[in-house]
């Protein structure tokens, strides 16, 4: 069930576009913001609300890299794996994260604290390697900095 607050926000997005369907990505973002991800149930709720079939909405949801159709941890770590970060040796960062969090890409730590994902170019190539945790960008990264960075997220 969509909450009153979610409906209110989605209604605002619908008011800005010609047809409710046009607001479906914004609606998915709103739901993901409150739950962390978009479950099958949420997907169906949004589809009903904007007048799409669940299959049609899922074809949109699964197209985009940052709509999560599986549960994620409290914090999502996005490691840039594109060309400049590779040249500057991001793989050491990735391997240290694998080791430290004891998970691989696409997985969530047992305590639900972190989900680790690769990500294409974060647009900060002059300060590679880079990663993002939630809304925070970290750049000019070295393996030594990782412990301190991760400690900020509980």
């Amino acid at each position: 069930m969509l909450t009153t607050e979610e409906k209110h926000k989605i209604d605002h997005e619908i008011s800005l576009v010609p047809s409710p369907k046009n607001a479906c990505i914004e609606a998915l973002k709103i739901v993901q913001n409150s739950h962390g991800w978009v479950s099958d149930e949420s997907l169906k709720d949004v589809a009903d609300y904007v007048g799409m079939s669940p299959a049609e909405l899922d074809s949109v949801a699964t197209f985009y890299n940052l709509i999560f159709r599986r549960p994620v941890g409290r914090h999502v770590v996005l490691v840039c794996d594109s060309i400049s970060c590779w040249v500057m040796g991001y793989e050491g960062i990735r391997d240290r994260l694998y080791e430290k969090l004891n998970i691989k890409y696409g997985q969530t730590t047992e305590d639900g604290r972190f989900t680790l994902l690769p990500n294409c170019c974060l647009g900060t190539c002059d300060r590679a390697p880079a990663l993002m945790i939630d809304n925070d960008l970290y750049r000019d990264l070295t393996v030594e900095q990782l412990d301190e960075i991760l400690e900020k997220y509980t």
Partner: peptide, 11 residues
Amino acid sequence: DEMEPGTFKDR
């Protein structure tokens, strides 16, 4: 959108 790898000028 600036998603071309290696590009960071519009930022």
